[in-house]
């Protein structure tokens, strides 16, 4: 069928610099067994923000329901994982992924907040007191 589109070598290989910088890039779609467009670089879909109180990170997680998502935080690291049994055409298979985010130095790991909406996970990472801006009074 015309629906399945395979990698077009002329578009995947015309940027030789990036091919050599990340040789697995060209093969990732094949390894993943998916359409070519499903491949994304490791930091794609992650955005970092901050204000005076918190760091914020938004991670794109399309198709992941809240009930299947697990978040664990430990020293300097947030682990995002997802595991689900998917049944297609009568055969069951396990779908999973795991992704680690390094938290900025001075994050108060115990107070991380999380929200998942429309396929975007939003974490708020409170800054430790020593990282917050302090106004200094001139005497």
């Amino acid at each position: 069928m015309k629906m399945i589109r395979y990698s077009n070598p002329t578009t995947d290989f015309n940027d030789w610099d990036s091919f050599f910088a990340d040789p697995f890039r060209a093969f990732a779609p094949l390894l993943a067994g998916r359409s070519t467009s499903a491949y994304r670089p490791a930091d794609a879909g992650v955005e970092w923000y901050e204000d005076d109180e918190n760091f914020y990170v938004r991670v794109e997680l399309p198709g992941v329901p809240k009930s299947e998502l697990h978040l664990d935080a430990e020293d300097g690291l947030v682990r995002i994982s997802y595991e689900k049994e998917v049944t297609t055409d009568g055969s069951a298979r396990r779908e999973s992924f795991e992704r680690h985010l390094r938290t900025p130095e001075g994050t108060d790991v115990a107070a991380i907040g999380a929200k998942l909406e429309d396929g975007i996970l939003e974490l708020s990472l409170p800054k430790a007191p020593e990282r917050k801006p302090v106004s200094i009074t001139v005497s």
Binding site: M3, S35, A38
Partner: peptide, 10 residues
């Protein structure tokens, strides 16, 4: 962007 997609026949 061109979004990621998957297709299958069923």
């Amino acid at each position: 962007y061109k979004p990621a997609y998957q297709s299958r026949y069923s």
